[in-house]
């Protein structure tokens, strides 16, 4: 038990190290990304350039620079931005995280409920017009770009129909912290999270439908019927139990990926100051410390989520717990 935990932690550390090295190398290999010129501003004299180079340590070998940056990021936590002088990046990420967390939790709620209802309904009514309609809707949701959908929603709720009874409640773009006003918080996140959840709802409903239908062909489902279980029990109790493994693992990874900044487009479109938008800004200004901070933050989430999903798997399926698959 302890050994597997340690090896797991070691793997996670290795993955995070690899990602950080990759980001670092890509940054310094990118032409035109020389931070000295950016920090010094346009037309700076060679003397100024040299001074900045020495001050920021850009004249040192790359491995040394890497170690120093990691030390500042993880140990002293005083890594400063290259673009906004003196701005510390770690507090920025920390203050952006609750925004993203709120958005993603709302979205996850919508897409889980939505996909369960749609997935089960279309599986039960398979090949009927309801099933076909739901699957087409799911496909539309899946293929609609989230930034386009967001902009369209903004167009109608913020300007065109904002004064109608339907959308009068919609607050202006931006984020209201939960501590300030719980109602305002919910209102500010409702439309962004719905927008974000649409594509996931479509994807998850389709996956759940096909998993459920294949589970229905299993011998154990036939046994459940033979026991005298009614259709509701057969589908929801036995069927879902067999088919939610892949659903759960997919959910864990998607959820973590979004928490790590994957909701970038939604946050930008709805002007939510979350981690995604921070990443977007950092990329736009090629600000290595901020990029590094946001990417590390995302990597930590994804790696932890991966470990959690594996743990959950073992919890859901006793066969995996015992280290044997199938027979």
């Amino acid at each position: 038990m302890i050994r597997s935990f340690l090896s797991r932690t070691g793997q996670m550390a290795l993955v995070i190290f690899g990602i950080s090295v990759l980001v670092f190398c890509i940054f310094f290999a990118t032409p035109g990304a020389d931070p000295t010129a950016r920090i010094a501003g346009r037309g700076a004299s060679p003397q100024v350039m040299a001074r900045i180079r020495a001050e920021y340590g850009f004249d040192r070998p790359l491995p040394v620079q890497y170690v120093r940056m990691m030390e500042k990021l993880f140990v002293t936590r005083d890594l400063t931005s290259f673009v906004n002088h003196g701005q510390k990046v770690v507090p920025e990420v920390v203050s952006a995280a609750p925004v993203t967390l709120s958005l993603v939790v709302w979205a996850a709620f919508f897409w889980v409920v939505g996909s369960l209802v749609i997935g089960v309904a279309s599986a039960v009514l398979r090949d009927s017009w309801v099933d076909r309609l739901l699957m087409v809707l799911g496909l539309i949701g899946l293929s609609m770009p989230v930034f386009w959908l967001g902009e369209v929603i903004n167009l109608f709720t913020q300007s065109r129909w904002h004064d109608t009874w339907l959308f009068r409640w919609v607050p202006p773009l931006g984020y209201v912290p939960l501590s300030q006003s719980p109602i305002g918080w919910a209102k500010s996140l409702l439309l962004p999270s719905l927008t974000l959840s649409v594509s996931f709802m479509g994807l998850y409903a389709r996956i759940l439908r096909s998993e459920l239908l294949s589970a229905m062909g299993e011998d154990s489902i036939r046994t459940a019927r033979a026991k005298g279980a009614g259709p509701a029990r057969v589908w929801l109790w036995h069927g879902l139990r067999l088919s939610w493994l892949s659903y759960v693992s997919l959910f864990g990874l998607d959820f973590a990926q979004l928490l790590g900044g994957g909701a970038l487009l939604t946050e930008v479109v709805f002007a939510l100051p979350g981690v995604g938008r921070l990443t977007y800004q950092a990329l736009a200004t090629l600000d290595l410390p901020l990029i590094m901070a946001t990417v590390m933050y995302a990597a930590v989430f994804v790696v932890i989520a991966n470990a959690l999903v594996d743990g959950l798997y073992a919890l859901l399926d006793p066969r995996i717990r015992d280290g044997q698959h199938g027979r």
């Binding site: 011998d219 154990s220 036939r222 046994t223 459940a224 139990r241 067999l242 859901l316 006793p318 027979r327």
Partner: peptide, 13 residues
Amino acid sequence: MIFQDPMTAFLPV
């Protein structure tokens, strides 16, 4: 009713 393969006839989880 009882079935041929009790491994698959029971719900594995």
